[in-house]
Amino acid sequence: MLEARLGETQLLKKIVDALKEIISLSTLDCSETGMQLQSMDNSHVSLVSLSLQTGCFEKYRCDRNVSLGLDLKSLSKVVKSASGDDSVTLSAADKADKLLLSFESDNKSRTADYELKLLNLDQDHLGIPDTNYACTVQMPSSEFARICRDMSMFSETVVISCTKQGIKFSANGDLGSANIKLAETSKGDITIDVEEPITQSFAGRYLNTFTRATPLSDRVKICLAPEVPLLVEYSIEDYGYIRYYLAPKVDD
């Protein structure tokens, strides 16, 4: 059986918020090492991968691997009903058809138990090869969210160029054009590692959706390489991550 307790429901709320705009149904695979989830969006343009190692949890027990087919909209409704500082325990039997969520208030005076019906999902899993990225940029996640929002006012396509001098985001549309450049800073809040300069185009709508994960981490890592999808990674409390992959736009 599975029993996993998070000290604060706030973390689960943030994770669900980071997933539900991209995917509506997904399987959460639980094993003794933690929880994993991987899904593509309906149009097969982006993929989200979530990993939570046991260190994310106050208590974690999973005797046998269990796959939980989740409707994220339903999970979101349940999680919204709890207070952020409640603790939450997820539990499921070995061949479960439901997930139990038990919320407990700080002073233990209020408990709330929910049963969520599980779905039998037949999901494709993709193998993501290890990639030696040409450019790796780390910046404050709020800065990345702001740039993605500002770019999307100008065009649905955002061009990202990365050189040793910095990373540049550009958008060209009916309104005009926008260019935002960031250089590496000495205090280390922006780091730019470039093996080889790169310029690629991406759909701004997806980049914007990825920034729903901003509350999970102060920092975001952006990795680019020729001919491979963009990787946008938010770490989760030292023991996990949410990674978004986005296929580039290519010239016709």
Binding site: M40, H44, V45, S46, L47, D124, H125, L126, G127, I128, P129, T157, S201, A203, E227, V228, P229, Y245, L246, A247, P248, K249, V250, D251, D252
Partner: peptide, 14 residues
């Protein structure tokens, strides 16, 4: 205008 590539062009099914 650039066209959107499909992610499955890059990652294989396992």
């Amino acid at each position: 205008t650039p066209i959107q590539n499909d992610l499955t062009e890059y990652f294989s099914l396992v």
